[in-house]
Each structure stands twice: as structure tokens, then as C-alpha cells.
Design a protein around this nucleic acid. Structure first.
Ligand SMILES: [Mn+2]
Ligand SMILES: [Mn+2]
Ligand SMILES: [Zn+2]
Ligand SMILES: [Zn+2]
Lengths: 138, 138
DNA sequence: ATCTATTCTTAGAAGTATTCTAAAAACATA
DNA sequence: TATGTTTTTAGAATACTTCTAAGAATAGAT
């Protein structure tokens, strides 16, 4: 099934929907796994008739972040992960499996105004590490 | 002034206080700036009679983290920062200057039990980005 | 349909942070 | 002192990301 939603989303956000960008965006829209650039490259390259370059993957991801189509998530040093869930939310890392779960903003108290008037908070992110009770949630 | 406190701390934590380790620990105890490995190397290498190797800096920092002498802090992709403040606390990054401030645990609500019983939280970290009111706080 | 300017993609090189390797030095113990 | 263990060292290797320079695709103007 072809999926016009990715191309449409890109257009809305002012990003020209090239095949490479569409296919990467599609992949992120259809996963909850917070993949790295490498994982995205791996997953996506055979959906294009031409060779896909590392540079294009990184260029595209940077463009998507810039345009607000996806979020960059940092749960570990060394590499960024990407997330098509752009709502305000936080992350839980299962230390056993490495799986990353979304924690909606509503589950944690609003922290913007906790710090007093010395610190003007633009945004913040919370990363939780721990174990998840029933492990069958990928 | 020589400072026996670093060596003593290392001994307490079960790390043999070699000159390299002492000098790196001393530097971290005497700064609030959350330096990177590179910045530590730069700051410390002329306090030793011998050449200091990158590998030793990284080995030492890993050993110190392992032993609980310092904390690793991730506020940006690409490189780790180090912090001799091992109390539970969080971080505020001034987006103008890049300076990183400690936010004591008491300033934010306890989040360990917010997530329901599905997620067993071992620990968590909050990073705030924003601007600081009076900028003269280094 | 061509021409032209701009944007996008490509392969590979370069850059940056960190770890690995193998050998030398320092240290501890007998 | 002899011996084994730990630590440090310089440089190579690795991992992730960005840069470079050239070609391909695209869009607009003629
Ligand atoms: Mn997410
Ligand atoms: Mn700190
Ligand atoms: Zn997310
Ligand atoms: Zn800190």
C-alpha cells in the first residue's frame, strides 16, 4: 500500500518530498522503536530504486528535525535516535532490552515553573532507566 | 597547596590513587563546569611530570564513574561530561553560554513513582534548556 | 523542448569522541 | 632482587556524523 500521508506531512512542514525523504519519513511514522540513523538506513535502503547514501540519511534526518517532522532523542552517548512522535513526551529505557518507551507528558508533573525565576526554562527532557514489568511490548 | 582529599576519596572508593587519577579527581572536585574528557586532559596535563595519554584520561574517567567518584552527564550528543557532584541532581543548560548548572533534586518533584506499576524506575535524569536570569554565574 | 539556476543525492574522505592494542613503566609482594 | 600484576603510554582502530566535490534531478523561464 502506498502511503501519501508522509509526502503530505512533508509538504505541510515545508520540506520537498523527495523519494528518499518520503521513505525515511514513512519508516519513522510506522515504528515506535526510536531507531538510529544506521538502523533507518538499513531498514529503508531497499525501498528505493537507487543506492541510498549515508549523507542523505543524515541530511534528511537533520532536515526533518529542523522542520519539526521528527524529534531527536538522546538516551545514550554516541548516537542520536529519531522519533516521529513530536508531542511533548519523555522516555523510558528498559535497561534489560534497551527498548525505549514513550512516556506522555501527562504522566509526569509539569516542571517548567519548578525552578524559580532565576532559570527561564525553554524545554526539558526526562529520561528514565529501569525495568518494565511485562516484557512483551517491544 | 597539596590536597590530600582527592587521594583519600579515591582510597575510600577502592581506587588506587595514582598521580594521574589524583590530579584528574582533584580537577573535578575543584570545578563546577562539567568538563569533557578533552577539557580535563587540557587542564590537567601540565600538573604531571610525565606526558598524559588520552587513553589514561578515558580509563581514569571510566574507573571513577564505575567507582562512584564522579558522574557522567549527557547534555549534548557526541561527548560525555564529568561531574564530581554525585548527589542526586539534575542539569540546566544555559543555551546562550552553554554553561551547565546543577539543579538539586529538591527543586523538582520526586518522579520515581509517577509512572505506575508497569515501569520500575531505577533512576532518571532531567535536563533543562533555557536562559539564566543574571548571567554572571559562570 | 531547451536552457539555466537551484536543490538534492552520491561516494568517499574527513572530523570528532572514544576504545583498543601492544609495549614500557610503575608497583606490590616475596 | 626477582616475579607477577596493574597502570600508563603512543598510536592505531572504531563509531557516528559531517564535509566535499561532482553528478542527477527539479523547477522556471524562454
Ligand atoms: Mn517516542
Ligand atoms: Mn553538576
Ligand atoms: Zn519519543
Ligand atoms: Zn551535575
Amino acid at each position: 500500500m502506498k502511503d501519501p500521508v508522509a509526502a503530505e506531512l512533508l509538504r505541510q512542514k515545508g520540506v520537498k518530498p523527495t523519494p528518499q525523504r518520503v521513505v525515511i519519513t514513512e519508516h519513522l511514522l510506522n515504528t515506535v522503536s526510536h531507531p538510529t540513523a544506521d538502523e533507518i538506513m538499513e531498514a529503508v535502503s531497499d525501498k528505493l530504486p537507487v543506492a541510498l547514501s549515508r549523507a542523505t540519511v543524515y541530511n534528511t534526518l537533520n532536515a526533518l528535525v529542523e522542520a519539526g517532522v521528527v524529534r531527536e532523542v538522546f538516551t545514550e552517548p554516541g548516537c542520536a535516535r529519531y522519533d516521529a512522535n513530536t508531542s511533548e513526551h519523555h522516555h523510558f529505557v528498559d535497561v534489560k532490552s534497551g527498548h525505549i518507551f514513550d512516556i506522555p507528558q501527562e504522566l509526569v508533573p509539569q516542571l517548567k515553573d519548578q525552578l524559580g525565576d532565576r532559570f527561564k526554562v525553554h524545554n526539558y527532557s526526562i529520561t528514565f532507566w529501569g525495568e518494565i514489568a511485562d516484557a512483551d511490548a517491544s
